[in-house]
Write a protein that binds this DNA or RNA. Structure first.
Lengths: 130, 130
DNA sequence: ATAACCCCTGGAGTATAGTCCATCCTATCC
DNA sequence: GGATAGGATGGACTATACTCCAGGGGTTAT
């Protein structure tokens, strides 16, 4: 199929698809163009794009996705490794959540603090005589 | 003080300080250089850098910080506005936390699922006959 | 006198994930 | 024959927050 159809079916813009091609995240298995010199994408590429979409939803970066695809293609991705990989990702996400929670708590303290004449973001700007 | 001292006292690298200067986040009130043509930073700049550090801990971007400084300098930053500002920031952080939690849950399902011969990231790569 | 150490500027490069633009080709419709 | 609607390529640009480098100073210690 041509890039327009692939774009519609995958939900990625043409530019994004071309960008993914440029970084090697998707490949045209044979770059034999049809008689009009247009690229002809296979069903496999569409499936790959759908997998990329999933990966994005799971919070994986393109680089992580690419690494996982590589492992998969080399047949190194057995259940045990796969689970470990996902568990590491979960821990990274948990770290991010913790950081955000600590930010949130600090900010909540500012909001909750009974303030009379005191500037509510005094904690933030305390050095500036707010 | 010279940039080296400011760097030590603030914990920001020289390059970072120069970068903050370039984007206007800090300013030399008078750019009167001393006899060696070196910049002479005031205590005020140090305090500003300390405020920036705080803001970073609270999760504000440099742009947000700059905006807040501007409001403060214009005297527009009263307690009510300040609280509203912080509350908006809290809500943005909550959104990010929610997104991360939903990613985490999805990944946790993959890990928890009783798998025999099935690849644990099948959900991710299901389209690829993993 | 030469090294070590501090300062200056301007500009390029890093990572992430695209988006947009100019310029070109080809087919089809009216 | 010109408009419209696809397609191709290469390269520039966006945001965020730096980091590094080249090339030019001056000061201080041995």
């Amino acid at each position: 199929m041509l890039i327009g159809e692939l774009s519609k079916k995958s939900g990625f813009s043409r530019d994004t698809i071309r960008f993914y091609e440029k970084i090697g995240l998707i490949k045209l298995e044979d770059d034999l163009r049809d008689r009009y010199q247009f690229k002809d994408y296979s069903e496999g590429v569409l499936k790959r794009l759908q997998a990329i979409r999933k990966m994005k939803e799971y919070g994986f970066t393109l680089q992580e996705t690419q690494g996982l695809f590589l492992l998969f293609e080399e047949g190194i991705l057995d259940p045990v490794r796969g689970i470990r990989y996902v568990e590491r990702k979960i821990r990274r996400i948990e770290q991010q959540i913790n950081e955000l929670n600590s930010m949130k708590e600090k900010l909540q303290e500012i909001v909750d603090r009974p303030s009379g004449e005191v500037c509510p973001i005094d904690e933030v700007l305390h050095a500036m005589n707010c």
